[in-house]
Amino acid sequence: MLKTYSLTTDTLLVSSESDIKNSSVVYVYGDEREYIESFEHKYDLKIGNILTFDDQVAYDTMIDRNDEKNFLVSFLFPKIHEGGHLDNLTTSVVFLVFKNKLIIFTNQKLNSISELLSNMVLRDINNFTEEVLLKIMQKDFYAMLNDLRGIKEKIDDLDSKISTSGPLRPTFGDLLTLQKYMIALSSTYKANHKELDFIKKNFTTIDDIDFSTKKIIDDLYDTSDTMDRIILGYSQYLDNLENMINNMISYQLNMIMKTLTEISIILTIPAIIFGFWGINVDVPFEKSSYGFFAVLIISVILSLICWFWLRRKKY
């Protein structure tokens, strides 16, 4: 699918899809192989591969026939899915930045991009492609930050489950899923940071770029650093939860072994007593009609004394 936008004075307006050549911004999503391949052949790019393998960013400088410098920039947009599955966790967003045209590619439609482009008011008309790209990244980075903060609720729920129910099997599954999230998101943010460095290096050297556009770059860095700090804090907290679960399991295992040991010691006492009274020599109560009950009572009393002693013993 294609959505096109034209720059009118200082505002982007939705335009006819048939007028792609005169459009200022083109958003391409879904199965548009023919359109993508035309740019791949023209500029010797691998846009399809970048969109397919959504685990890396790409950035490059292109020089056209008029010696104009153009850019290929992509970043990864992670989305936390409901249900805990990690399939298609990230979506690659690819930008082709020309002097007077911006083309955006995604495999699936991102409503945040189309909503932002509609009636977008621009301040830096001379470099509107750079401003549009940065504003899209800014909005997506804010969405990423909000999603990341939402994981705290999942961590709190996991903490509550551990406190109330102990280390059950579902708890391990939730912990493993969250740890996978942290690993995937951490690698995604690191990749996006490299792309930010490329943008800062090339965009801030433009002579007539507006100051507000540079401020957006600084804001993107601040947001990226905030996400890195949150990821680090969440990862450390999950590691502590894992250690706590392991300690709880060890404690439960120790208590089970302690109980089994106490039972073994208690059962050893009547076994020894019955063994003594079973030897083929004269023993007390041998000729008494109540001898069996006497031996049994003695065994029970000694076993109870041993049990009380073990329960009072702190070890």
Rank of each mutant, 00 (worst) to 15 (best):
T268R: 11
G278Y: 04
T261G: 05
I269K: 03
S235I: 01
C306S: 14
I256H: 03
M257K: 01
I217W: 07
R311N: 13
I263C: 05
D222V: 14
I249P: 09
E262L: 09
I298M: 14
L302I: 10
G278P: 02
G278W: 05
N247C: 06
L267G: 01
N240F: 11
K313Y: 13
L260I: 01
L241M: 15
Q236H: 15
I272Q: 09
M248Y: 12
F308K: 03
N280C: 07
Y221S: 12
W277V: 01
C306H: 02
L238A: 02
E242F: 13
S288G: 09
L296N: 02
W307A: 12
V283F: 08
S299H: 03
V300H: 05
T226A: 12
D228K: 13
M227S: 08
S212I: 14
M257C: 00
T261S: 15
M255W: 00
Y237M: 14
K258A: 02
D222M: 13
T259A: 13
N280L: 08
V295E: 02
Y234M: 07
S250R: 06
E262R: 04
I217D: 05
N246A: 13
D282A: 04
N254Y: 08
F308T: 02
L296D: 00
Y290I: 07
P270D: 11
I266H: 07
K214N: 07
P270V: 10
S264R: 04
Q252L: 09
L241P: 09
L310Y: 01
G291E: 03
R229C: 01
K287F: 03
V300D: 03
I245A: 09
Y234A: 02
T223Y: 14
S250L: 08
L267F: 15
R311I: 11
V300S: 05
E262K: 07
I305S: 03
L304D: 04
D228L: 10
I231V: 02
I217T: 05
P270N: 13
G275L: 10
Q236G: 15
L241R: 06
I249H: 09
N240D: 12
G278N: 06
I231R: 00
I273R: 11
S264T: 15
N243T: 11
L302S: 06
D218Q: 05
I249M: 14
T268M: 15
F274D: 06
Y290C: 03
V300N: 06
E242T: 13
R311A: 07
E286V: 11
L253F: 03
I230H: 00
K215W: 03
K215N: 15
N247V: 08
N243Y: 07
